[in-house]
Design a protein around this nucleic acid. Sequence first.
DNA 1: CGGCAAGTTGAACCGCCTCAATGACGGTGG
DNA 2: CCACCGTCATTGAGGCGGTTCAACTTGCCG
Lengths: 242, 242
Amino acid sequence: MPLADSALVRKLGSFIRLSATELNILIDIQSNSRRIARQAEVVHEGQSGHQVYVLQEGWASCYKDLADGGRQIITFSVPGDCLGLRSVLLRTSDHSFATITDALVSIVPSQRITSLFHDQPRLGAAILWAASRDEATTVEHLVNIGRRSAIQGMAHLILELYERLQLVGLATPTGFDCPLNQHAFADALGLSAIHVNRTLRQLRERGLITLSEHRLVIHDPEKLRELAEYNSSYLDQAYAPI
Amino acid sequence: MPLADSALVRKLGSFIRLSATELNILIDIQSNSRRIARQAEVVHEGQSGHQVYVLQEGWASCYKDLADGGRQIITFSVPGDCLGLRSVLLRTSDHSFATITDALVSIVPSQRITSLFHDQPRLGAAILWAASRDEATTVEHLVNIGRRSAIQGMAHLILELYERLQLVGLATPTGFDCPLNQHAFADALGLSAIHVNRTLRQLRERGLITLSEHRLVIHDPEKLRELAEYNSSYLDQAYAPI
DNA sequence: CGGCAAGTTGAACCGCCTCAATGACGGTGG
DNA sequence: CCACCGTCATTGAGGCGGTTCAACTTGCCG
């Protein structure tokens, strides 16, 4: 994929009209890329890595490990997402980050990001906007875990992923390719993998979705949204120009 | 409290050495303040309010309401915290925000914040740093709800509040004044108020803490940290200068 | 004195977990 | 080519953590 049509460009471009200069800067920023195998840890919690990773292809996850061997996935990352943005100003990363599938990432020194705020305020704001949006997603995730039942949370997570993938052109009208296994869903939703299995079965039996062979099909978006009490406004945030 | 010694100045001042100019700007920014009664909603989810609120005195909470009447508290705010920072670049607020006690807040137009990034990069970065730190807290909260037991989560939340209050000089060696009722704890931890009651009793019976008359006393910080698997590094983030 | 908010405690229930066993699939080496 | 293995999905049985309903207390305020 040419960088001029990268997922990040597509994402930011949907909220500010990128000038030729800004587009070139964005392309330049993403020019240093690297392939990473699946299931590889890229950043470990506590590590001091002053870099931002822009995911170009593949899926990844941000997570924290617990003393008892458990794991909490904070967010799944799909193409166009920036990783480590939050840690730019902190000395160490507050979470780990690993690929789920084989992936292609661009590596951007933190300093290139921070200098944007001064040199390219519009672009800096757009990135900050994307970061704010990510955080809104994390907050919604928190609600998901704290106050929703397993089946509601699962439905909500699926709808969220669907919308985010649509934004970067990786969804189809009926669903999306989904590399997540039941264990990954479990770690994201604070459930056991076994209960994820039963929950997926319920969703299937209700005719809402099917997940098999890494393909997630949404049969009845309407009822799914109803079940999840899904309100996409937290993602449907237009850019408020400075 | 004179603004030159406000909680925000104290907080930011603990990470960058504020010049006289920067101090004056910070003071100026906080000059428009307003008293708000307890239990008052300041911002409602979905509201388009392009303002940032700096909490000077009192406690508040960020939360989301659910269709079934439930509520998930995202974070408690204590003096020195900025509210609505995440929504600066979004059109609408992604969460509601209400006072818990009587409070004094400074109201800052979003534009004053965004222009800081260009005009006062150091100060802008310090505010961004504070925002990153808040987000790390939210992430830890997510782990708390997703993967920790009720008693661990409660212990963790108490320790987090204790550290944050220390940072702005509102804690004592033995504990802190805590206006939160059991219902507030429940909404933060994703529990029922009744179970919060039992959990607090357990912590009391183990000789770790007591909470009564709005005063939280920590009897055995060591064992409490051990129980919570508390690692404060996510808050103990030195500022990484640009 | 009456009423409401907040805390406390018991009893019964249920959502989700844990343990355990089995089946399906793909990769790998003999 | 097949036997073997690890990973993942699936299903059942039993147990625990946390919920819900209900009752009672205490303190505060009008």
